[in-house]
């Protein structure tokens, strides 16, 4: 009588038995979801939860993110996986907006220019703020706190510009403040933006990835990924070959056809992987790119479902 088609058929091939959560396989924290004292209080076995499910007693455990307390019970408020650190129980939502933390690298888009600050869309619950005082001026000039700087703000960033930045601090209401005070941060050009769910981007040692196919990637933790033409080593930020004036340039460099092709191919690969909810890392992207080249898959073919399935099957088995 009752039928469910809650997800496209394609993903049913992933069996649930394969699922292991990040908290389980040993890191230094005392996390054992199947611990001895665990079974009685928790709905043991299932580590997945949904809004309104009672997880445990609030007298024995503390509530973390994604939970609330009602009538002596810790109750989940989002659909996701239960995580426990000692006595702290939290639920990590499987799909949600980006939750910023200080030090995160993000890719964002300027939405508004305001007095002494820019508003930046960063896929978070509020627009981020980039203060005029937290950017590098061209040529490393010290900012003289002058009105002329404020009048020139649009020469640095305008509405619609893309930038890579780091989360510096939070305001009282939870909005994040960004900074670009490093030569690796700043305005983005020569490429293309892809948006994926933020949970698919893990914290890596470096979020600046260079693929051998002449493509550079910036994996923003907020789920925005910048795919661009490769910049030569000696013109990298911090090297002498860098032109100071070009930091805030709006002009793309000349990009030849093979590079354009490579950028689009990487972009499409990211879209395919993200649509199948595969976490992204440089290894996977490289593997996927090699697969695309080996099998002679055209950029446009990557939009076809059957070819996508082939890709996902290959990437999944190599691990």
């Amino acid at each position: 009588m009752i039928t469910f088609t809650s997800f496209p058929k394609s993903k049913d091939s992933f069996s649930y038995t394969a699922a292991k959560f990040s908290a389980v396989d040993g890191n230094d924290m005392d996390v054992d979801v199947y611990g001895d004292d665990y079974g009685e209080d928790f709905d043991s076995g299932t580590k997945l939860t949904y809004p309104g499910e009672s997880i445990t007693s609030s007298y024995d455990y503390m509530r973390g993110h994604g939970t609330f307390i009602d009538q002596g019970n810790v109750i989940s408020s989002v659909a996701g996986t239960i995580e426990r650190v000692n006595k702290l129980v939290s639920v990590r939502a499987i799909r949600t907006r980006y939750n910023p933390e200080v030090g995160d690298l993000i890719v964002g888009r300027i939405t508004e220019v305001q007095p002494r600050r820019w508003k930046v869309d960063a896929n978070s619950r509020q627009d981020a703020v980039l203060m005029l005082s937290s950017i590098n001026l061209p040529g490393g000039v010290q900012r003289r706190k002058l009105e002329s700087d404020e009048l020139q703000m649009r020469q640095f960033f305008e509405g619609g510009d893309l930038l890579v930045a780091e989360v510096q601090a939070f305001f009282a209401d939870g909005a994040m403040s960004l900074h670009t005070r490093s030569l690796t941060y700043g305005k983005l050009r020569n490429g293309q933006l892809v948006c994926v769910p933020p949970i698919l981007i893990r914290r890596l040692k470096s979020h600046f990835v260079s693929l051998p196919c002449n493509v550079d990637l910036i994996l923003g933790l907020n789920g925005y990924i910048w795919v661009s033409k490769h910049i030569d080593q000696n013109r990298q930020p911090g090297e002498e070959g860098l032109d100071a004036e070009s930091v805030y340039s709006n002009q793309n460099e000349a990009i030849d056809a093979p590079t354009r092709m490579a950028v689009s191919r990487v972009t499409n690969l990211i879209k395919v992987l993200a649509s199948h909810f595969v976490p992204l890392s440089d290894v996977i992207l490289l593997e996927a790119y090699e697969w695309a080249v080996e099998n002679d898959v055209e950029v446009k073919d990557l939009t076809q479902p059957d070819i996508c399935e082939g890709l996902i099957a290959t990437v999944g088995t190599k691990g």
């Binding site: 997800f7 699922a19 996986t81 595969v278 996977i284 593997e287 999944g316």
Partner: peptide, 13 residues
Amino acid sequence: RTRTLVAAMSVAP
């Protein structure tokens, strides 16, 4: 849906 997504995430190398 949560189960499918979590399973999909764990498949990748």
